[in-house]
Simulated assay, not measured.
Amino acid sequence: MTFSLVARCAQTGMFGTAIASSSPAVAARCSYTRAGVGAVSSQNITDPTLGPLALDLMQGGLSATDAIAQIQGQAQFMEYRQVLAIDRNGRTAIHSGPRSLGIWTQARGVNVIAAGNLLANEDVPQAMVAGFENATGHLGDRLLAAMRAGLAAGGEAGPIHSAGLQMCDTVAWPVADLRCDWTEDCPIEAVATAWAIYQPQLDAYVQRALDPREAPSYGVAGDE
């Protein structure tokens, strides 16, 4: 009931994940990024502890492959889980348990891996990887291009209702964490609309956190 990708920008070192699902608030449970470490998507019958655990293991020096292998050996009910990871070097790994729902599969590219479950068809993850690799511009634009490509290839077997986009850069918090937790319209396009508004302000929000004295005007009523 979910399709997602995790990716690394080779030019900037940023990490990101994008996700969509028929379930509500999917990104709140499934999307994880950490600056200088990597990105993880933990989905299917979701265990929200697996994303932070994978990032902790990679921060401790494990590759994405070794981190996923360690999780496979220690976490419970992994036959129900689907976990995608990318590490600081762009290496990717995935676990897809045999009790993942419906049609489930995955695809890899350079600095990107995509996967899904309860998919309309097996071509969706490969379409997402191609969409990411063929897109240009900011990592956020490329992630959204991948999600649109996955949806155009069939997406989930039923209608999707929530989506999210998360990215990290060099600071300790995600520099973008945009979500549509429920809509009867297209949640990917709702997130894309939010990204179009947020992207021009992204650097300003980071600067305001680091040193508001050097930040641009806040652009709110009463701000001079």
Rank of each mutant, 00 (worst) to 15 (best):
M1L: 08
T2C: 06
T2Y: 08
T2L: 08
L5I: 12
L5G: 04
L5M: 10
R8L: 13
M14S: 12
G16P: 06
T17K: 01
T17I: 11
A18S: 10
A18E: 06
S21N: 09
S21G: 05
S22E: 11
S23A: 13
S23L: 14
V26W: 11
C30V: 02
C30N: 01
S31K: 00
Y32H: 08
T33F: 00
S42G: 01
Q43Y: 01
T46E: 02
L50M: 01
L50T: 01
P52D: 01
P52W: 01
L53R: 11
L55I: 02
M58Q: 04
Q59S: 07
A64T: 03
T65S: 07
D66G: 01
Q70M: 05
I71E: 02
Q74K: 05
F77V: 01
F77T: 02
M78R: 01
R81A: 02
L84Y: 00
R88A: 12
R91F: 00
S96T: 14
S96W: 02
P98Q: 11
L101C: 06
L101H: 07
G102S: 10
I103D: 04
W104Q: 13
T105V: 08
Q106S: 14
A107V: 04
A107D: 09
A107Y: 07
G109W: 09
N111M: 04
G116F: 06
A120P: 02
D123L: 06
Q126I: 02
A127R: 12
M128R: 04
V129Q: 08
V129W: 04
N134C: 09
A135F: 09
G140S: 08
R142S: 11
L143Y: 07
A145I: 11
A145F: 09
A146F: 07
R148P: 05
G150Y: 09
L151P: 03
L151F: 13
A153G: 09
A153D: 08
G154T: 10
E156S: 15
I160W: 06
H161Y: 10
S162I: 11
A163P: 04
G164D: 07
Q166K: 14
T170W: 11
W173P: 04
P174E: 03
D177I: 07
R179H: 09
R179M: 05
R179L: 07
D181H: 12
E184W: 13
D185T: 15
P187E: 11
I188P: 14
E189C: 13
A190R: 15
A192Q: 15
T193R: 14
A196L: 12
I197T: 15
P200M: 13
Y205F: 15
V206G: 07
Q207P: 03
Q207F: 03
R208V: 03
D211C: 12
P212F: 14
P212A: 15
R213V: 13
E214H: 15
P216E: 15
S217N: 15
V220L: 15
D223W: 15
E224I: 15
